[in-house]
Amino acid sequence: MNKKIFVPVVVTVVLAAALYGVAVGLLPVTNENRLADLKSILTTLLPGSETFTVEPYSGEDANISAVYKADNGYVVETVTDGYVDEITLLVGVSNDGKVTGVVVRDQHETWGLGQKAANDVPFLTQLLLDKETLTVGENVDGVTGATVTSKAVVKAVNSAKAFVTGADVSSSATEWGG
């Protein structure tokens, strides 16, 4: 057997061990920064709130993955199907059902098209308007060339609003495609 084959084996083992060491060593920093980042986003999405508690969600809306409760409202984490992959959003909703902020936390949509929905100010601003149910093509203009992504974002916002107001989540407002 050729002994040279052990070179890539040894390199792989050494690098895997080094990665493990770095990952474990950075774990406290990672957790601390994640919490600080989340708190910063939560306080931005729901102005006037400083303290948030994680509220267990056991409802039937599959789009909702986490709920953070504050005195004056909620921040709801949603996961909806975009064009390429799942889109994770954090949506701030006040106790009276008004959307106070939206931020895209994770998405892998098409570069130059769906990705624009994450930071397109005119599109995202429409979601903050005080409307009963948002629908792309009716009271919301989607991002050009990214209709599916736009609908996924709108669907997430509708789900978050429905969670706070108690609206029917099985309505067409929260079905795939908005």
Binding site: L15, L19, V22, A23, L26, V29, T30, R34, D37
Partner: peptide
């Protein structure tokens, strides 16, 4: 290993970054 290291470092120091899946 280098590509994974980039993910680990971003997760630790820039958790808000959206990295390629």
């Amino acid at each position: 290993a280098l590509a994974c290291l980039v993910h680990v470092l971003y997760n630790a120091f820039a958790p808000q970054a959206m990295l390629p899946a």
